[in-house]
Amino acid sequence: MPIYNKITAGFALGAASPITSGLEDVIYIFNEGDIALTFDTTNPLIVTGLTAVTDALVYKFTGTNNSFNSISKLTKTQVGPRYTEEIDFNIAGLSTEIKTQLMAMGYGRVRAITVNNYKSGDSAIELFGAVNGLILSEAERNAAEESIEGGYKLKLTNPDKLKEPFPPRAVSIAPQSGTATYASTLAALEALTV
């Protein structure tokens, strides 16, 4: 009887491109049902397409000074490994428009795309919440917090009891003709952005 999953490759950290921590100060968020995902037919860890359903958009949040962070944690369950995904970010503001968006992220499910500082691998751009989506699990505002000038500290994470079956997916989108690159993937994201 064959094993369900087998190790098929090794890896080594190269001196030519050492690993770099952190995310760029940008995150792309969209409603779970608004953007259809296309996966690589041979590797389900790679998203090869994002298609807007009707007039849906991807919303771009920008920050400064490393204000975004992502975490993926493996959890062993009775049916196999599952992953808890989290994204922490700040919003410098407290308008009613911001509060409306916070409420929408708390009740609805979203997906999020981050851009890693480390660009040498094929996961420079990653999708979180591919299967079960993410919800706003924390929204904290301390008016006296000087580091974010009284804005909101937010956390997106998987809904209760709905961990992801895969780690964050790599996003790699090819242009109309040619192969996928970092630039072509960012261009595809920006084309869907408000």
Rank of each mutant, 00 (worst) to 15 (best):
T48M: 05
T48C: 03
T48W: 02
L50I: 07
L50K: 01
A52N: 08
V53P: 03
V53K: 11
T54Y: 04
T54I: 11
T54G: 13
T54D: 15
T54P: 02
D55F: 05
A56Q: 06
A56W: 05
L57N: 09
L57Y: 11
V58K: 01
V58I: 14
Y59R: 01
K60N: 01
K60P: 00
F61W: 12
F61A: 12
F61N: 03
F61Y: 15
F61S: 06
T62L: 07
G63W: 08
T64Q: 14
T64K: 12
T64L: 11
T64E: 14
N66Y: 08
N66G: 06
N66H: 09
S70F: 01
S70N: 10
I71H: 02
S72W: 01
S72Y: 07
K73I: 04
K73H: 04
L74Y: 04
T75C: 03
T75P: 04
K76S: 12
T77F: 04
T77K: 12
V79W: 04
V79P: 00
P81M: 10
R82M: 11
Y83W: 15
Y83H: 02
Y83C: 02
I87L: 08
I87A: 09
D88R: 08
F89Q: 02
N90L: 13
N90F: 08
N90E: 14
N90W: 08
I91E: 08
G93P: 05
L94N: 15
L94D: 12
L94F: 14
S95G: 14
S95A: 05
T96H: 03
T96K: 11
E97T: 10
E97F: 02
I98D: 04
K99E: 11
K99M: 09
T100D: 14
T100H: 03
Q101W: 13
Q101I: 08
L102C: 04
M103F: 11
A104R: 11
A104N: 14
A104T: 09
A104W: 00
G106K: 14
Y107A: 12
R109H: 13
R109I: 12
R109K: 15
R109G: 10
V110Y: 02
V110P: 00
R111V: 03
I113A: 05
T114N: 00
T114L: 07
T114W: 04
N116Q: 14
Y118R: 03
Y118E: 13
Y118C: 11
K119A: 13
G121S: 15
D122A: 12
D122E: 11
A124D: 03
I125Q: 00
E126Y: 07
L127E: 02
F128Q: 08
F128A: 07
G129R: 00
G129P: 01
G129N: 07
A130I: 06
